[in-house]
């Protein structure tokens, strides 16, 4: 038992240890200062931030709907939940292909956009954001939905009997109760968007400064300059660890069981 558990732990941890051990630490400053790396870093942060913002705008209402769907009949309730869950379990490449079929130049909607408005979606930074939203939205929705469900709706009624207006109820009761969930969801959403690869390279392509995000740059660098690839991978690892620490220290203790 314990031996297997140790083995499992090794499977999880050793690759990362190897990544850190094999990193070209001496050249790291030079590698990370490269134009191609900085470009990918900036693009990744800008697109992942935009995707997180979009996820918040779209995801909080969807989470509210999902939380309310608890009273719905079984079939529509399960369909709704499945629709939100699918991108979580789908290989991202499939998401990329699906987005292409919808928004590509010959896609269901993309062809209309192209013919009527002269707008093409693939190969733009916007396409990167869309791919990221597709894969990361469920993370936000489920985090917020969980917070909404665990929050007792009767507290809102209680606040109203104590003289709180609708806005005050939202501001002083609903928001503080779900805020930890929203924040945790946004952080998960951001880190998932930052790491997005498959849907992006399939749907958005790979052009430096426009669609070549950190993971794609890292993948490509592996073919020509492994040292740069390792440096990029380290950068992504560092961001992920930072996100994890931020989540644990700042938000998780605030959510009481």
């Amino acid at each position: 038992m314990t031996a297997v558990a140790v083995l499992a732990l090794a499977v999880l941890v050793l690759p990362l240890v190897a990544l850190v051990a094999r990193a070209p630490w001496a050249e790291l400053p030079e590698l990370l200062a490269r134009e191609s790396v900085l470009q990918a870093l900036v693009l990744s942060f800008v697109t992942a931030t935009a995707a997180t913002g979009l996820c918040l705008v779209l995801g909080v209402p969807l989470a509210t709907l999902l939380a309310r769907a608890a009273d719905w009949p079984t079939v529509p309730r399960r369909l709704l939940r499945a629709a939100v869950t699918v991108p979580l379990v789908l290989p991202p490449v499939v998401g990329g292909i699906a987005l292409l079929m919808l928004l590509g130049r010959r896609g269901l909607v993309g062809s209309v956009l192209e013919d009527w408005f002269g707008v093409t979606v693939p190969f733009t930074s916007g396409a990167v954001v869309l791919a990221q939203v597709f894969v990361s939205l469920p993370f936000l929705v489920f985090a917020v939905e969980g917070a909404l469900r665990s929050a007792d709706r009767r507290t809102e009624g209680a606040a109203a009997t104590l003289g709180a207006s609708r806005w005050q109820v939202f501001r002083h009761v609903t928001l503080p109760l779900v805020a930890p969930g929203v924040a945790a969801g946004a952080v998960l959403c951001f880190s998932r968007a930052l790491g997005e690869f498959g849907a992006t390279i399939t749907f958005a392509g790979s052009l430096p400064g426009v669609t070549r995000t950190l993971p794609i740059a890292s993948y490509l660098a592996m073919q020509s300059d492994p040292d740069e690839a390792v440096a990029l991978a380290l950068l992504l690892l560092a961001v992920s660890v930072a996100v994890l620490l931020g989540l644990r220290d700042r938000w998780l203790p605030g959510v009481r069981g």
Binding site: G157, A158, T161, G163
Partner: peptide
């Protein structure tokens, strides 16, 4: 909020 009716809820429903 404008009725001036105080309520002690079942399970109290504190914030």
């Amino acid at each position: 909020e404008r009725r001036r009716i105080g309520v002690v809820f079942q399970d109290y429903v504190l914030f």
